[in-house]
Design a protein around this nucleic acid. Structure first.
Lengths: 136, 136
DNA sequence: CCTTAGATTAGACTCAGTCCAAGGTGAGAT
DNA sequence: ATCTCACCTTGGACTGAGTCTAATCTAAGG
């Protein structure tokens, strides 16, 4: 029983085996899986999980704030279970590996705000990881 | 003749009417069109432009560094002609309006770098624009 | 152990973007 | 001016991520 499963149950979620294996996959820092990776992971434990259920479950978890949705340059959405601890991302542009990093949020000066009401800020460092750098 | 068209010609690009109308659309600050918007824009001037040509041309301009490609939460790519002046983005999460903003790049402390070689950083402020704020 | 609201499913569908092979054309060479 | 051909454009088929739907199934409260 992961804390996430426990929180979902407390929210009144019906805890099906499908939801359980999906929630179990979504645990830890530096976890940024695509829907397809979550599906593969889930099927290792419960082979009959459907693609639709993975999409349904991930979207529901995003909408209640239990997952962050990240859209990376290739257009595929990634899901980040590390919602408790505010952070940004360090992305290897070659292999796609992504790590959580902690940096102070940049702030807009009043004249740069253009009258917008700021809700949040996302920072992504584009980089090459040590493995890809040595392979090059 | 926009400066972009001039630069493309100097690079040896064959200047076709299709490329000309696409390049003319991609001019200015705060321009962040999707491929489909570029296509619509181009067809107002030259109705027979094909979708494939718009995609070809935009991708070629990105690969020579004359356009920036931005991937926004909805997964569609946007194209930003403002490459001369380093900047970040302010995005209205309701209507999708996007403005260029100038902020200092955040930096990673050595221990947050995880041995990666940093290539650049992207900052996006998620916000609500004045129009959407007053409509709500 | 019944009941039923809510969950799961396969597969059709959408939408952005890519690919292809055939035909068209800009612009340097003559 | 016009020839030539390497490069460009095109419609349509294709791909891959994600959504939707209608039929079926099931977790869990009574």
């Amino acid at each position: 029983m992961t804390p996430l499963i426990d929180r979902l149950r407390r929210r009144g979620w019906r805890m099906t085996p499908q939801r359980r294996v999906i929630a179990e996959a979504m645990t830890g820092e530096h976890v940024h899986m695509t829907a397809d990776e979550v599906l593969r992971h889930a099927r290792e434990v419960l082979p009959e999980v459907s693609r639709a259920t993975v999409y349904n479950t991930l979207n529901e978890m995003v909408s209640i704030g239990e997952l962050l949705e990240i859209t990376h340059a290739d257009g595929r959405k990634r899901y980040d279970p590390n919602v408790a601890d505010h952070h940004h991302h360090l992305l290897c542009v070659e292999c796609g590996r992504m790590l959580d990093v902690h940096v102070d949020d940049p702030a807009l000066t009043a004249d740069q705000q253009h009258g917008f009401h700021i809700l949040g800020v996302e920072v992504t460092f584009r980089a090459r990881c040590p493995e890809c750098a040595s392979a090059a």
